[in-house]
C-alpha cells in the first residue's frame, strides 16, 4: 500500500478526504467526481478557470453544498450525515461578504460572535489583526470600501478560530497591507494547527502561503494545469495516483454525473447556431 493509498483509506490526519465527490448546482454537475486529500495543517491553493468548481468545492467542504455521490469527510465528519458538525468547525470567506450592510462593523462581528459562541473580545482581536482601524468600528458596513469589507469578512471568520479555513478569493480587493495581514493570519492559523484551502486567481499572494497547489477544471481535479483549459471537458482526466500529490488520485472514468455533464455539453453544443 502506498502512502497515498493509506491516506485515501485511512482518514487519520486528514482534514479533507473526498472520493468521487459529485456536487450539483441545480441540475448542473459543478463537481464531477473529485478525489482530494488534504492533510491537517496544510495550506492548499485551488487554481482553475472560472466555473471550474472551486467555489463549489469550498462550499462542499463547509457542509453547505450537498454531496450527491461519492464519499466525503471533513475534519473526520461525514459530509452526508454530519454536515452540521462540519459547519461548526470551518470558517468560510465567500464571494458574498456574509455580513449585514446596515449594521456597523462591531455590531456585525458581535452578532456573529454571540451566535457562534465566540467572545466579543475575539472579534476585536480579529479586527485588530486584520488592520481594521478603530475609527471604522462604528461605521455601517455599506459605507466601507470593498477592501475594508473584505478585511471585516475575514475577521468574522478568524474570530471563530476554525479548524479548517475555506477562503474563496480572499486577496481580491485587498491592498498590499491587507494582503500581508491576511497572509500573516493564515500563517498564524496554520501554526496553531488549522488547515487552509484557498481558491484564488491571485498568483503571488496566494502562493506565498500555500504549501501545495492543485488544479480544477470542469469540476474535477487535474494532476497539473490543463494546457488548454476547457471548462467543460467531455472526458475526465485519467491521472494515476501519485504519492507526491494525493489529490491527483485516479478520477472515475465515467460516473453518472460525468455522463450527465456530457449530455448537458452535447445539448449546449447542439443548441449553438
Amino acid at each position: 500500500m502506498t502512502d497515498c493509498d493509506a491516506k485515501l483509506t485511512g482518514g487519520g490526519g486528514l482534514a479533507v478526504r473526498l472520493r468521487g465527490a459529485v456536487c450539483l448546482r441545480g441540475a448542473f454537475p459543478a463537481l464531477t467526481g473529485v478525489n482530494l486529500n488534504v492533510d491537517e495543517g496544510e495550506a492548499v491553493l485551488l487554481r482553475g478557470p472560472n466555473g471550474a468548481g472551486k467555489s463549489t468545492l469550498l462550499r462542499l467542504c463547509a457542509g453547505l453544498a450537498a454531496l450527491r455521490a461519492g464519499e466525503g469527510e471533513v475534519l473526520g465528519y461525514d459530509l452526508r450525515t454530519e454536515s452540521r458538525s462540519v459547519r461548526l468547525e470551518v470558517g468560510l470567506v465567500a464571494h458574498h461578504m456574509m455580513l449585514y450592510e446596515d449594521l456597523t462593523v462591531v455590531e456585525n462581528l458581535e452578532f456573529w460572535a454571540r451566535l457562534s459562541g465566540a467572545s466579543a473580545n475575539q472579534a476585536h482581536v480579529a479586527l485588530r489583526s486584520l488592520g481594521v482601524e478603530e475609527r471604522l468600528h462604528e461605521v455601517k458596513l455599506r459605507k466601507l470600501s470593498a477592501g475594508q469589507r473584505k478585511r471585516v469578512s475575514v475577521a468574522a471568520v478568524a474570530m471563530r478560530r476554525p479548524r479548517l479555513w475555506l477562503l474563496d478569493e480572499p486577496h481580491a480587493g485587498l491592498d498590499a497591507s491587507g494582503r500581508e495581514a491576511l497572509n500573516e493570519m493564515i500563517n498564524l492559523a496554520r501554526r496553531s494547527g488549522a488547515t487552509v484551502l484557498i481558491a484564488s486567481h491571485e498568483g503571488a499572494s496566494a502562493e506565498a502561503v500555500a504549501t501545495r497547489t492543485i488544479h480544477l477544471a470542469g469540476g474535477a481535479v487535474w494532476p497539473s494545469a490543463p494546457s488548454t483549459p476547457d471548462p467543460w471537458p467531455a472526458t475526465q482526466p485519467t491521472a494515476t495516483p501519485s504519492t507526491a500529490d494525493p489529490s491527483t488520485a485516479a478520477q472515475p472514468k465515467a460516473t453518472p454525473s460525468t455522463a450527465a455533464r456530457r449530455r448537458w455539453r452535447s445539448r449546449r453544443l447542439s443548441a449553438r447556431p
Binding site: 453547505l64 459547519r87 468560510l92 458574498h96 461578504m97 456574509m98 449585514y100 468574522a156
Partner: peptide, 10 residues
C-alpha cells in the same frame, strides 16, 4: 449578503 450561509455555519 450571503448571511444565510453564515447563519447555517454558526
Amino acid at each position: 449578503s450571503g448571511a444565510a450561509d453564515a447563519i447555517r455555519l454558526s
